[in-house]
Write a protein that binds this DNA or RNA. Structure first.
Length: 609
DNA sequence: ATAGGGTTAG
């Protein structure tokens, strides 16, 4: 059925048969009627219909009706602009605004038009269009209208990340309302500046502005980015005090906040107390457990299915991440199956999660297949694929992928540089890795921070260029943190450099005391050096700490069973098999010309750690 | 008749 035909069918259903003719008649012929007899202008009706078309997702129908309107007033134009916004066709909304301004019939935009158009600019993430409209808005004397002011604020804060401009605009708003405050706070959280956000939140409370659910959930989000338990508790208290405990979106934000500052227990309590859970409630808890207790994530998911709640893309992204953490390929394949069955294939974020899952479960081929199948990729897709290649030792592939990505016009960020340098590091491609590091700083003007320095130190360190790594650390434009020293320590250990190693240990201990693993490394370094007195001292220090290094566990999956074991394990009926497999592996290793490094292994074992 | 702020992922 052609679209035009469908339009008339819908007309027949929704409004009387004659309406289309009447519309036309009213607009062309009825203008001579005197006021008391003048019916409501016909464009009211048409505009209403346009609105309801958009609400039902019938976009083409709306456009056709609009095109047929003989006289388009500003309200009709604005309804079209906001309609296109509502279905995320921001570019269409923008071109409608341009068309309206070009229209020779001289339609004058009003405050509604400006707020809708500015929203479209935000949707397009176009600072350029935004400034343009800002200028026009000033020309039409729009600032002063709170709706226009707020969306301008939103544009500068959330879309351009220009908090200076945003604060200035905020200061210029004469009578701020709750939306102004929330928008400013949201801008700070968007910049990951939780402290800035909470500061504004505090000012808002001091200014006597009344609290509302929107603003509470955004404040909770600010806490999330700080990761502070104390602040979280305070926000939760505000929720209780103001009686927002029954507001589902607010409680979702509170749960998310607890999950992200590591208080899963508190999140769980909130979850059980909530009487009205929505899909986001479930998704939040599943995502919360994904990192530290992936199996629990899966359990919550199955309970969700039992309660008849239908999962969406968000749910499956977290589930895939949980499966990736468990590294059980057969689970991952099942989840992939579920996604296909639910018809959720082709979602960008899901595909990204699939790339990551297959790589972490050891199936790099299916990672690549997913990657190649994607109709459009974003930076995360490329990065996930590179990380996958890196962890599988395919440095060359990662490097090629990086170059291909740049050629396809995607702008690299610091994380993708970490991915490619990391991949070079694991594959021994030292020169390439250094080249990317230099390129990041010089060609892309990205300021290096701790993490990327850690990657480069690792790159040099692994390759045995320990001195160079040390020089790099010394030349860093800020004080290296414990992660950088820990990476360096690994290199010293690997290449038997006890002197530099001890230096690294002392730095790590200064910056982050209380980690048993550091003492173990220290003692091993002393042992390798033959210095048994220092060895004993290090071990003693560690015991006084009373904090045991978490046992390193290994597992194999055989015929739907997972067999878990630790070094030196003797119990369990399956251990006999484990040792048999181990012997085979050792033989393969030796055949390939590798010999086990026992130095450190023995000492680690001795403590029963 | 047309306009507003709150869940992903490397």
């Amino acid at each position: 059925m052609s679209t035009r035909k469908r339009v008339s069918t819908i007309f027949n259903h929704q409004i009387p048969q004659t309406i289309r003719n009447s519309l036309h008649w009213l607009q062309t012929e009825a203008t001579h009627l005197s006021p008391p007899f003048l019916p409501k202008p016909p464009s009211y009706l048409a505009t209403n219909i346009i609105k309801s078309y958009f609400e039902n997702g019938q976009i083409q129908e709306a456009q056709i009706l609009f095109d047929e309107m003989p006289r388009k007033d500003v309200v009709a134009w604005t309804a079209m602009i906001s309609g296109y916004n509502s279905c995320s066709f921001h570019k269409r909304a923008w071109s409608l605004f341009c068309a309206m301004m070009r229209d020779c019939r001289g339609v004058v935009p009003n405050e509604y038009t400006f707020s809708s158009t500015l929203k479209a600019c935000k949707g397009m993430k176009s600072q350029f269009c935004g400034s343009l409209v800002h200028g026009l808005a000033i020309k039409y004397a729009m600032p002063g209208c709170i709706y226009v002011d707020n969306v301008l604020l939103d544009l500068y804060a959330t879309c351009c990340g220009n908090m200076d401009a945003a604060s200035m605009l905020f200061g210029e708003i004469g009578t701020k309302n709750a939306v102004s405050w929330t928008t400013l706070i949201a801008g700070y959280t968007h910049q990951d500046d939780g402290y800035g956000a909470l500061q504004v939140f505090r000012q808002m409370l001091l200014a006597g502005e009344e609290l509302n659910p929107y603003c509470i959930s955004i404040a909770a989000r600010a806490c999330t980015s700080i990761g502070s338990y104390m602040h979280s508790k305070q926000i939760h208290a505000i929720v209780v005090k103001n009686g927002f405990e029954s507001n589902t979106p607010v409680m979702n934000a509170i749960m998310d906040m607890y999950c992200r500052c590591g208080s899963l227990g508190e999140a769980d309590v909130c979850f059980h107390v909530m009487t009205e859970k929505d899909l986001i409630t479930w998704n939040t808890l599943i995502a919360g457990y994904e990192k530290s207790y992936p199996n629990k994530s899966l359990k919550i998911y199955s309970r969700m299915e039992l309660e008849g709640i239908s999962p969406n893309c968000f749910t499956f992204t977290s589930i895939l991440a949980a499966v990736a953490n468990l590294a059980v390929l057969s689970f991952g394949e099942q989840v992939h199956g579920l996604i296909v069955k639910r018809g959720l294939e082709g979602n960008l974020e899901l595909d990204n999660a699939l790339i990551d899952m297959y790589a972490k479960c050891g199936n790099i081929m299916d990672s690549r297949k997913t990657f190649d199948r994607m109709p459009s990729k974003n930076l995360v897709s490329w990065t996930s694929m590179m990380i996958g290649y890196g962890s599988h030792g395919y440095g060359k592939e990662a490097v090629d992928l990086f170059d291909e990505m740049v050629k396809s016009g995607i702008m690299p960020d610091r994380i993708v540089f970490m991915a490619v340098v990391g991949a070079c590091s694991h594959a021994g491609l030292v020169e390439e890795g250094l080249r990317y590091f230099t390129s990041m700083v010089h060609d892309y003007n990205i300021k290096p921070e701790q993490e990327i320095y850690g990657c480069v130190v690792d790159l040099l360190g692994r390759a045995g260029r320990v001195e160079e790594a040390y020089e790099l650390i010394k030349s860093m434009p800020f004080l290296p943190d414990e992660t950088v020293w820990a990476v360096f320590l690994g290199a010293c250990k690997m290449h038997k450099r006890p002197e530099l190693g001890k230096l690294a240990v002392s730095r790590v201990l200064e910056l982050r005391p209380g980690i048993a693993g550091t003492y173990i490394t220290l003692s091993n370094l002393c042992a390798a050096d033959g210095n048994w007195r220092e060895f004993a001292a290090a071990r003693k220090l560690m015991r006084r700490l009373g904090n045991k290094k978490e046992t390193g566990r290994s597992w194999v999956e055989l015929q739907n069973e997972i067999y878990c074991f630790v070094a030196g394990d003797k119990v369990g009926s399956h251990m006999e098999w484990v040792y048999r497999v181990l012997e085979k592996l050792l033989q393969h290793m030796k055949d390939a010309g590798y010999f086990p490094e026992l130095d450190y292994f023995l000492h680690d074992l001795e403590d029963g750690t």
